[in-house]
């Protein structure tokens, strides 16, 4: 589904990524872990097209997308959430989620100006679809009209997930979906992620610090440290990998 081939990225003298290569299998949850500053978010930014890697390729469904703009990647079915929530704060929850569907809709400027007719039909179908498929599913029906700023952190994260899901993505990239959440919220979010994978067969790529959650829900894990990929494998292999243990706990003197 997603293949990353030898990606290098540097900002001036800082080498953020040095030769990252892995593959995320279709319909599975792949975790990316590593200490702070390991380059996880940089990797995500390369995948979604914000940063251009100095070398290396990103391949989705056999298509090389390295040169595509972020919005073109969205049209291929790549959705993501952000580490520090990037919701549209001036819009309601519902409008945020509707925006997630941008690529699936066809209304053009002229039909939008008229509204009545094709645009209205599309909007109402969209609304019904979102209500059933997303809002009910993520249990956010009570806040659909609320402004984003009025929501607590955990719910904002959930709305962001809803916005990404609205796109009906083939590949869902979650940047620290449970950072800063308490146990209960974390468990809820983990359940939602598993549900998404089961129900829609979405390929999920996940950056997370919460080791329990990563070990529990991921089928494969990639470990980064200082921009280098130091290991990849199943959760069990990773838990017993000495390089990974060193990176997290520090080398034994």
């Amino acid at each position: 589904m997603l293949r990353v081939e030898d990606v290098h990225l540097s900002f001036g003298g800082v080498k953020a990524l040095q030769g990252v290569s892995f593959e995320a299998a279709k319909g599975e949850i792949t975790g990316v872990i590593g200490p702070n500053g390991a380059g996880k978010t940089s990797l995500f930014n390369v995948l979604s097209g914000f940063y251009t890697p100095s070398t290396g390729r990103v391949i989705v469904d056999g298509q090389d997308i390295s040169g595509l703009k972020p919005n073109a990647r969205a049209e291929l079915g790549m959705a993501r959430t952000f580490q520090n929530i990037a919701l549209f704060r001036g819009m309601s929850v519902l409008d945020n989620i509707k925006l997630g569907c941008h690529t699936r809709l066809n209304t053009n400027l002229w039909s939008a100006l008229r509204y009545f007719g094709s645009a209205q039909k599309e909007e109402l179908e969209l609304r019904a679809d979102l209500e059933e498929r997303i809002i009910d599913f993520l249990e956010i029906d009570h806040i659909r009209k609320a402004p984003i700023t009025a929501l607590p952190y955990g719910l904002q994260k959930r709305v962001e997930l809803a916005r990404a899901l609205a796109m009906q993505p083939k590949l869902l990239m979650l940047d620290e979906p449970v950072a800063g959440m308490n146990r209960e919220e974390t468990a809820d979010m983990a359940r939602f992620i598993l549900d998404v994978q089961e129900k829609f067969g979405t390929t999920v790529l996940l950056v997370e610090h919460d080791m329990h959650m990563v070990m529990d829900i991921c089928s494969r894990i990639v470990v980064l440290n200082f921009g280098q990929q130091i290991a990849q494998g199943t959760p069990d292999e990773i838990a017993n990998n000495s390089a990974v243990v060193d990176a997290y706990l520090g080398q034994a003197a």
Partner: peptide
């Protein structure tokens, strides 16, 4: 509201 986020969403 947030141009980069909009771009990510297509």
């Amino acid at each position: 509201e947030r141009d980069y986020s909009a771009e990510i969403l297509g």
